[in-house]
């Protein structure tokens, strides 16, 4: 149901380098503050958690509240000491988890 997340991770890096990672997850991030035309509150539905791991180890994560803007954008860093795979996951309030992987070659 969710559109695919967009990720920017360098394809290569030097051992010990700190790389910058950018992620964008298409999502309305319904805050729970809006009312529909009949005056009824539109229920909250957001991505409430993002997790980034590298080769199975935690790198960065974010707990998000409705004050995060629609299509949540997160930029962060990772120190890479070896080649491997980043795994990113986004969790919706309804329990749906969307994941994406990206490999990096580290020399």
């Amino acid at each position: 149901m969710a559109d695919a997340p967009k990720i920017r991770v360098p394809k290569t890096a030097k051992k010990g380098e700190i790389v910058e990672i950018k992620t964008l997850m298409p999502h309305i991030m319904e805050s729970g503050q809006r009312k529909d035309k009949d005056g009824k509150t539109i229920p909250r539905k957001i991505i409430n958690k993002f997790v980034a791991e590298f080769n199975g180890k935690p790198v960065f994560s974010a707990d998000m509240d409705p004050a995060i803007a629609a299509n949540p954008y997160l930029q962060f860093n990772a120190k890479v000491n070896e080649s491997g795979t980043f795994k990113f996951s986004w969790t919706d309030d309804d329990g749906t988890v969307t994941t994406s992987e990206q490999k990096i070659e580290v020399a």
């Binding site: 700190i18 790389v19 590298f54 180890k57 935690p58 790198v59 960065f60 994560s61 974010a62 707990d63 962060f76 860093n77 990772a78 120190k79």
Partner: peptide, 8 residues
């Protein structure tokens, strides 16, 4: 935001 030493 939660960081680890791997965040750099």
């Amino acid at each position: 935001f939660h960081f680890t030493p791997l965040s750099g």
